[in-house]
Computed example of a mutant assay.
Amino acid sequence: MKKILVTGAKGQLGSELQVLAQNYPQFEWVFTDWEELDLCDLENLETQLNQINPQIIINCAAHTAVDKAESEFELSDVLNHQSVAALAKWSKAHDCKFIHVSTDYVFDGTAATALTETAPTNPINVYGVTKLAGEKACLELNPNSIIIRTSWVYSSFGNNFVKTMSRLMQERDSLNVVNDQIGSPTYAADLAQAIMTILTHTNWQAGIYNFSNEGEVSWYEFALAIQEIGGFDCEISGIPSAAYPTPAKRPQYSLLDKSKIKNTFGVEVPDYKDSLVVCMKIVSG
């Protein structure tokens, strides 16, 4: 029985993998968060990995607080880059399959069409810079790795845009939401399923893959979809990013092209609205 180690198990994706794990009893699952496996403790990481001795690693851990990352470069670099390098190196040495989750923030947002895996990277914030460094280290130290870039992740677990908007729409009469950043949301449960589709596929094809739900929307349009599905009575206005300054710059356009993951592994990519309905049902109980 192959053992799967999942890092960042308390995050949105890690939590969804825990739900999904019961459908895959052919694997032995080990879920760790920082209490069980501290990825910042680089000195002891190898020893801990030797003790767990997985045949597959799914790295969901990251420093994802994009604005905080601007003033926490060191922590971001350890979690998003150096620990990834250590995991990649260990997995290469132990013939362990390695899936690492990355982000659309490796792009600068100046594209006008959906980004393929070979589109030029040029991150514009610390989060993106450290995640790109992690990708490069991963491919250099273990060329047999799979990297999955995703975007705008939400789930019934943790804090995210969907849950925040749902709450605010019930508390307030009106909301302003940025309307000039374009991409596609990702329901973490769908991403978890995509990862398992890859792991149970007969053909392991290393490299970079994109995954998000289908659809091209702004955050404002995403908010309108949340309002419609939730039946919330709140006035929502679209505003430019300039009217809502944040410590970290965001890419203006980061829609991901999913052709490669679909064609290589037969991964199904649901429409963002269909997945949003599923998630909001769970959240509303």
Rank of each mutant, 00 (worst) to 15 (best):
T64W: 12
S83C: 10
A86M: 09
A93Q: 15
T110K: 14
F107Y: 12
L115T: 00
N176F: 08
S83A: 14
F107G: 01
A137D: 02
E74N: 15
S102W: 04
S91I: 03
I57L: 08
S174F: 06
L168E: 04
S156W: 10
E171I: 09
A61R: 01
A114C: 08
K97T: 14
N144D: 15
N144V: 12
T103C: 13
E171V: 04
A119W: 03
S184L: 05
D108E: 10
E117I: 02
K68W: 15
V78K: 02
K92P: 15
L132D: 01
A65E: 15
E72A: 11
S102L: 08
E70K: 03
N159C: 15
F161W: 10
K68L: 12
Q170H: 14
H100P: 13
A114E: 09
T164V: 12
I147S: 02
Y105E: 11
S91P: 13
R167E: 15
E70A: 06
A69R: 00
S71P: 11
Q82K: 11
I124N: 03
D180H: 03
K92H: 14
S151F: 08
S166I: 12
S71F: 15
M169W: 04
A62C: 10
T186I: 06
L141A: 11
P185T: 07
V66N: 01
L132V: 08
A85R: 05
Q55L: 13
D180L: 04
A88S: 13
M169S: 02
I148C: 04
N142G: 10
S145I: 10
A188L: 06
S71E: 14
V162M: 07
F161H: 03
N142W: 04
A62Y: 02
R149W: 12
Y154D: 04
A112Y: 14
A61S: 11
I56P: 01
T64R: 09
I58K: 00
D67A: 03
K131C: 02
G109H: 01
D180M: 02
N122G: 14
C96K: 03
V101A: 07
E74A: 15
H94I: 09
N142Q: 13
T118F: 13
A137F: 00
S174V: 06
G109A: 03
A189K: 05
I99A: 05
D173N: 13
I146H: 07
S156I: 11
K68C: 15
A119E: 05
S151Q: 07
I57N: 01
L87Q: 04
V106C: 06
E72I: 11
D108P: 14
V84N: 02
K92L: 12
A133C: 11
Y154T: 09
T164H: 14
V153D: 04
D190P: 03
E140P: 06
N80K: 06
F157P: 01
A62V: 04
